[in-house]
Simulated scan of single mutants.
Amino acid sequence: MLMNKDSGPASGEAKLQYGPNGFRVLRGGQHVFCAASGVPIALDELRYWSVEYQEAYASAELATERLKL
């Protein structure tokens, strides 16, 4: 699922490109922020995102609510 472009780990917020089957790390980091709640999501716990909106979500429920808008 996780494909690194950067050579090493970094701290802070990562920049990702979301695809239909996974995501690509454009800038290294340890987390991204949920577009619906604003909570940080560790990259190894990231399971929900929108390819169309290029956003991450902390849970399936938050993703569903966000995508209803």
Rank of each mutant, 00 (worst) to 15 (best):
L43R: 02
G29N: 05
E52P: 02
L67M: 13
M1P: 07
R27F: 06
C34W: 00
R27M: 04
G29Y: 01
G22R: 07
N21C: 04
I41E: 00
S37F: 03
P9E: 13
A42R: 13
A10Y: 04
V39H: 09
Q54R: 12
F33T: 10
A36C: 07
A63P: 00
R66S: 13
Q30G: 15
Y48G: 00
T64S: 14
G19Q: 10
L46A: 07
F33L: 14
P9A: 11
N21I: 00
S59W: 01
L46I: 06
Y18D: 03
Y48H: 12
V25Q: 10
L26W: 05
G19C: 06
L16Q: 01
A58L: 11
D44Q: 14
A36M: 09
G28N: 08
C34K: 06
P20L: 05
L46T: 00
M3F: 10
G22M: 01
A60G: 08
L62W: 04
M1Q: 12
P40G: 03
Q54I: 06
T64R: 13
R47N: 14
Y48F: 15
E61S: 12
L43E: 01
I41F: 08
A42S: 04
N21F: 08
V39N: 13
W49I: 01
E52L: 10
W49T: 00
I41T: 03
S50D: 09
Q54G: 09
N21P: 00
M1E: 11
H31V: 01
L16H: 04
L26Q: 09
G8M: 09
Y48W: 13
L69N: 10
A35E: 07
N4K: 08
L43V: 12
S7Y: 12
G28W: 01
S59I: 04
G29V: 12
L26M: 12
H31T: 03
V51G: 02
A63R: 15
V51L: 09
A60L: 12
A10F: 09
R47T: 00
L43Y: 07
A35N: 07
L43H: 05
H31K: 05
V51I: 07
R47Y: 02
K68H: 09
I41C: 05
Q54W: 08
E52A: 15
S50Q: 14
Q30N: 15
S50M: 09
I41A: 05
A36F: 03
F23Y: 15
R24Q: 12
S37R: 06
L26I: 15
G28T: 03
A60P: 01
V32Q: 01
W49E: 00
N21V: 04
A63S: 13
E61Y: 10
S37N: 07
K15E: 15
K5D: 07
A60E: 13
Y53I: 03
Q30T: 14
Q17K: 15
L43N: 04
Q17V: 10
V32M: 02
A63T: 04
L62N: 11
Y53S: 14
S37W: 05
L62R: 12
R24A: 11
Y48P: 01
W49H: 01
P20Q: 13
V32K: 00
S37Q: 07
C34I: 06
I41P: 00
D44P: 05
F33H: 10
R66V: 00
E55F: 08
Q30M: 15
R24L: 15
P40L: 04
L16N: 03
K5T: 14
P20M: 04
G29S: 08
W49M: 02
